[in-house]
């Protein structure tokens, strides 16, 4: 589209049947519809998490005298996130509730900004800027995945003391059958929901690398537009959006 007299509707915005009805290209609209279907999947996961969580007793139902300060983990009631997620790499044994997950949230929000900056650079057809911001986005994605890998490893291996059951047996960490944090369903949902989100981040990073590769090789420059950066950008922002909800419902509420 580098010619001076471009048609009113460039090829990538024209549908087979004529002009695009919603003023977005076919691929972008389909990305939106796909993200909508993905919204349903994640909603289903979070709704079922909520239902199961509230069908378990809280610690106040079991031990009315216990407060949030004196809370202790038990398999008889649902845990509170501040007491489960309080470890940070290299700061062994120090209780820092929600600090690490806050860092992960920051990383993902930041990589969302660098992504939208890459999209903006694409509008200006600035190849060097697209490459720069895509690289930052990919880096952010890898940092998030690394953090999640650490968090999973810590969750699975557990704390040094573990949990002592009524029959004297010890439980360390978590698997799908039992865990030291609370009812089995708690760890099951943790693995499923953060795992499903992490899979999305992983595919997002793969897509970002492909876009970076194509942009660097001048594919989009020759094509005349950087709409592919926008489409993958939509996906990447969606992954960030899902994390905002997972963060609220899994780590804060």
């Amino acid at each position: 589209m580098a010619v001076a007299n471009a048609p009113a509707n460039p090829d990538h915005l024209t549908w087979q049947g004529g002009t695009q009805p919603m003023k977005v290209g076919y691929g972008k609209l389909m990305m939106w519809i796909f993200l909508l279907s993905d919204t349903f999947t994640f909603s289903a996961l979070l709704v079922s998490y909520g239902l199961v969580r509230f069908s378990f007793p809280t610690f106040k139902d079991v031990l009315p005298d216990m407060t949030y300060k004196t809370f202790e983990l038990s398999q008889d009631y649902w845990p509170i996130p501040e007491k489960v997620f309080e470890a940070v790499p290299f700061l062994h044994g120090i209780s820092l509730p929600l600090v690490f997950v806050g860092l992960m949230t920051f990383i993902l929000i930041f990589s969302s900004v660098t992504m939208v900056l890459a999209v903006e650079a694409g509008h200006r057809k600035d190849k060097a800027d697209v490459e720069k911001w895509m690289l930052w986005t990919i880096l952010g994605g890898f940092m998030f995945l690394g953090s999640q890998a650490w968090e999973w490893a810590h969750f699975i291996h557990g704390t040094e003391n573990g949990m002592t059951l009524a029959n004297g047996a010890k439980v360390f960490g978590a698997n799908l059958v039992q865990n030291e944090y609370g009812p089995a369903a708690f760890a099951d949902f943790f693995f499923f929901i953060t795992g499903f989100h992490g899979t999305h981040v992983l595919s997002g990073v793969v897509l970002n690398i492909m876009i970076f590769y194509n942009a660097t090789n001048g594919v989009y420059e020759r094509r005349g537009h950087y709409e592919m950066v926008e489409k993958v950008g939509l996906y990447w922002h969606f992954v960030d959006l899902v994390w905002v909800f997972v963060f609220t419902f899994f780590y804060l509420v």
Binding site: M1, A2, A4, A6, P10, L13, K23, V24, K28, V113, V116, L117, E120, A121, G122, H123, R124, K125, D126, D129, H225, Y226, E227, E230
Partner: peptide, 20 residues
């Protein structure tokens, strides 16, 4: 996405204030 279609965007200054 009006402005992605135009050709006059080439060499434009970054409009990133809003995003930050």
């Amino acid at each position: 996405m009006g402005h992605s279609v135009e050709n006059s965007t080439e060499g434009q200054k970054p409009q990133t204030k809003e995003l930050w």
